[in-house]
């Protein structure tokens, strides 16, 4: 038996996840954790899409989630390349070390 979950509650969870992710991006200095926080933020957005799609019974929300999954995969591929470069150049995973491009 399917349990009806009100859409508001799902959106609250999504918002909570998003804030957690944002907090992670802002406070963590390790670039790996930063990327993980980004994934959390994207999943929060995906959850909101799913909930909205379920509410209106439309497939668009799930299609958007598929797109986000593809985007996340591409992002991770690029980001891991950056991580490799940063760790080789600066011998650390601290993003603040890569702050040479300043005014």
């Amino acid at each position: 038996m399917a349990i009806e979950v009100p859409v508001e509650q799902v959106l609250m969870v999504a918002a909570g996840l998003f804030l957690l992710g944002l907090l992670g991006v802002l406070v963590r200095r390790n670039i790996i954790f930063l990327l993980m926080s980004l994934e959390v933020m994207m999943n929060a957005a995906g959850l909101a899409f799913i909930a909205a799609g379920a509410k209106w019974g439309a497939p668009d929300g799930q299609i958007m989630f598929m797109l986000i999954l593809a985007l996340a995969a591409a992002e991770v591929a690029v980001a891991l390349g950056l991580v490799l470069q940063i760790s080789r150049r600066f011998d650390t995973l601290d993003v603040d070390a890569a702050s040479e491009l300043n005014g």
Binding site: V25, L34, V95, S99, L101, G103
Partner: peptide, 15 residues
């Protein structure tokens, strides 16, 4: 003045 905002810190931009 404008150049002061360009710190090069990724997290500062995100914030």
């Amino acid at each position: 003045v404008g150049a002061l905002t360009q710190t090069g810190r990724l997290r500062w931009y995100a914030a």
